[in-house]
Design a protein around this nucleic acid. Sequence first.
DNA 1: AACAATAGTGCAACCGGTTGCAAGCGCAAG
DNA 2: CTTGCGCTTGCAACCGGTTGCACTATTGTT
Lengths: 334, 334
Amino acid sequence: MTSKRNGTATLADVAAAAGVSKSTASRAFSRPELIRPENVDRIRRIAAELGYTADPRARALSTGRTANIAVIVPDIANPFFPPLVRAVESGAERAELAVFLGDTDESASRERVLVDRLEKQVDGFVLASPRLPDAQIRELAERVPTVLINRDIPGVHRVLVDAATGVREAVELLTALGHRAIAYLAGPPESWADQQRRAAVVQAASHAGLALSVLELGRPSYEAGRECVGSMIATGATAAIAFDDVIAHGVLAGFATLGREVPADFSVIGCDDVLAATTFPALTTISGGSAASGAAALDTLLALIDGEHPEQRTAIAGHLVHRASVSAVRQHAR
Amino acid sequence: MTSKRNGTATLADVAAAAGVSKSTASRAFSRPELIRPENVDRIRRIAAELGYTADPRARALSTGRTANIAVIVPDIANPFFPPLVRAVESGAERAELAVFLGDTDESASRERVLVDRLEKQVDGFVLASPRLPDAQIRELAERVPTVLINRDIPGVHRVLVDAATGVREAVELLTALGHRAIAYLAGPPESWADQQRRAAVVQAASHAGLALSVLELGRPSYEAGRECVGSMIATGATAAIAFDDVIAHGVLAGFATLGREVPADFSVIGCDDVLAATTFPALTTISGGSAASGAAALDTLLALIDGEHPEQRTAIAGHLVHRASVSAVRQHAR
DNA sequence: AACAATAGTGCAACCGGTTGCAAGCGCAAG
DNA sequence: CTTGCGCTTGCAACCGGTTGCACTATTGTT
């Protein structure tokens, strides 16, 4: 016999104390217009005195609504996700929903387990950059309201940040500043975000007539960014667009280690705007991601839960935030 | 009539399909040793075919155990918390618990609301840097297994990172490197962590015979760190220990802006080790915080849930991680 | 062969709410 | 003085599991 949960008052206790039936007590909260006003007051007062709070589990069992949602992320320690989670969290707070957080550690199988464990106790899912196969996500979305972030599966509700706009702005800026050869520091090719960004860079560069080198970095990390600087310089590029801010931050460090100056010697542009101005020099980056997509996903999910039919595909336009890591190409460069 | 939740199979369905009673079906999962082995197999197979999964709500209702826990943080976007949450998350995964995340936005009242909403659907709480008054936390801990992080309330289970050790190491290092005057860049005085760190620095500095200036920065932020550099230099200090890595990171940027070099011109030490090596120069810092305290808190909580009586107070010894932002004081300095 | 012990199963109550339906009530209309 | 209707309220079933207890075979013991 472990410590039993201290006996909080139940609805039956309240009903007994008020001399009414459970149904009446229940309705004093859920449908007060059906109950004689003076009784509503009395029941509520007694409930308060007893410290009664409805048990969400029991309520969920009969109503089918849990008042919970879940947000699943690949890695909460990746700076892209905390603002996203925070946005979901604050929207959920307004809707009086509690939120489960699942961290899949970038693993599809753990994601599967989490989703299964949570499915019965939530009214909906926000899946951020899910790693599950399309088919499984489709099935899930059929059973439970589900909104994807950064994953484009037709037929499933999703919010996507539109890389094209921001990338175009970035390339235009670089072109205007005299750069003629740039590099794209690619992220994980299986990620939808990288596919989009890569394609956008390729297209924009070719449109602007810029030479483009793509460097495959694999898992996006600070180290990967720092270590690619040498080979990046070797391509002859004078500016780089990185898959994300973390890589870009690493690149900054790489240059500093080499004693080269950004932006004087080289221009760097990140993506996601999650490091804000906390790099040195402050990072020019393509914003429009994290918090906004969390908020948008939550709005869609709430609508879905309410049985509405929100837009299936929400695009968030990323745009360039110009800070200090970009400047005109040096005259004597190249 | 909103979209009713798609009819997943219930235990009754399984029982019917297997031609046994609900009890037998139930026990085929929870107490298989009571059921004839061949029936266990058959029931489980049929359940699998029907895609049956037990409803955690219903189970919770009768067993009293929810298999959920909650972790409440003041601000998930503060880099101290994601690793902590991640550690809790991964421990919970092992114990097959799902985790609620609450973000209080640094507000005691939102914390109150969250705790109330969650209390009935979790087996325990991890409260990280809670803002609630002692009395309320005590009451909660009496009703529900609860573990605090970075909050020292006697009688309540808690894990605290012991600043003293790491701070002492830091001060010893600085002393050995020839520094004679240092600064402490203080965090929010109402935070337990700042109180500890401040006291430890004061004591260690006096013990080592170092001159110490304390600069009040209020809310710990990158900007605050960057902007205090001027007045910090004015104190005559040649090294600083910051309340946290975020401030220290700002200080690094402040020096870079001034064209001064760290560590050649000035040594900087952070706290928490949440920025890892992602600053330039890589930040020397007092580690032992985030992930470790999350893991320790979870262990304590699990024990508590199992009805054991774990140590009430767990101290995590912070220790100095020596990276690149500290060096010997320049001969001509001062 | 009679009897006890044991393994396997089912009945029904219970966890704490919600809700359809019907019953009791007062009051106005006929 | 009925009849009818609307307002309140209670009964009881239900949501989907778990579990104490009783019951029936089986097997083992003298």
